[in-house]
């Protein structure tokens, strides 16, 4: 399945947000995930389904003022 994650097109087998994070090796800790411009609550990660051509953004905190 093709997804656009953080601006990059990737091939993924993930059926849910949580599976995508695992696949990408991202610790689920302090990240926020947006699917097609909708913020997905952390509790929904295990069940929120991903579909072909979804646009996903995964963000975390970096240094800033």
């Amino acid at each position: 399945m093709k997804l656009t994650v953080n601006g990059e097109e990737i091939d993924s087998r993930a059926k849910t947000v949580q599976e995508l994070l695992l696949e990408l090796g991202i610790k689920p800790g302090a990240v926020a995930v947006e699917v097609n411009l909708k913020v997905i609550k952390r509790a929904e990660h295990p069940v929120y389904p991903l579909s072909e051509r979804d646009t996903v953004e995964i963000v975390s905190f970096v240094g800033g003022g």
Partner: peptide, 30 residues
């Protein structure tokens, strides 16, 4: 204060919070 940015998919999440004790410092995203 902290900024919100895309996770680098090649390097994984940056780990800023590994250096900030969130029990001691309240996080203020900008």
């Amino acid at each position: 204060t902290v900024a919100v940015r895309r996770v680098d998919l090649k390097r994984g999440s940056g780990g800023l919070l590994d250096y900030i004790d969130t029990k001691r410092y309240r996080i203020l995203p900008n």
